[in-house]
Write a protein that binds this DNA or RNA. Structure first.
Lengths: 116, 116
DNA sequence: GATTTAGTTGCATCATTGCGCATGTATACT
DNA sequence: AGTATACATGCGCAATGATGCAACTAAATC
């Protein structure tokens, strides 16, 4: 029998739950990575106009990027008057990344035992 | 003077160094995420043909996906005869993710102090 | 109420990307 | 040598995504 059928399927699904494609899709664009870095370095919430100053594109594109990051749970939007403040969800993002690292290693070790 | 110029620029660049777009670009595709999960759960190196069994696409596409993951440093390729074994770089990937989480939080806190 | 400012969104364009198929290359088998 | 297997890659197509511009909404200012 092949080792393939011995793969810990529960582990795969557990990983795929953590592997939200939305998150990585949100972070795969260099402009959005720049935005996240800028938001992180600011240590506070930034308006769209402020955020747009870090990347050389039209601010309407920045607005779209921020909306996408919001859908992915990377940032949170707070409306103050006519301006919208986008705040990086540092804690959530960091723990998601760490949880992913943990799950990867746990899954790998479990797979090693199973295929031994 | 605006607070924008007070942004800790060193922190931004430090983050952007860790924010390799290649990594997230490698992980933003659902098929590749499935491959990584499959490789992680296997606990060993898999051939292209074995890897292809987790995703419903032609194996030539899987070969391309694995090559991309290799360029991003997510997997390592070992040639054994006529077959190529792709092994997940679990340790490197996990520590990259954790390093990213740490850098994000450090950057955020430094930014908070600067903007206070 | 009219005007300015901050953001969002529809639209058209352009570039990327994923995909299957066919072909090419290297290794194993007979 | 000839064939079969494992993988990589060039090609064309279809789908997706990023961008700028312009039109729109909402809130502040006059």
């Amino acid at each position: 029998m092949t080792t393939r059928t011995d793969l810990p399927a529960s582990c795969v699904t557990a990983l795929e739950e953590r592997f939200e494609p939305e998150l990585f899709q949100a972070l795969c664009d260099p402009v959005r990575l720049g935005l996240v870095a800028h938001l992180a370095a600011s240590g506070r919430a930034l308006t769209v106009t402020e955020s747009a100053q870090c990347c050389g594109i039209h601010f309407s594109g920045v607005s779209r990027h921020l909306a996408l990051l919001k859908r992915a749970g990377v940032v949170r939007a707070e409306k103050h008057g006519r301006e919208v403040h986008y705040r990086l969800e540092v804690g959530a993002l960091a723990s998601t990344l760490r949880g992913l690292a943990d799950a990867l290693e746990a899954c790998w070790e479990e797979g090693q035992r199973a295929s031994a």
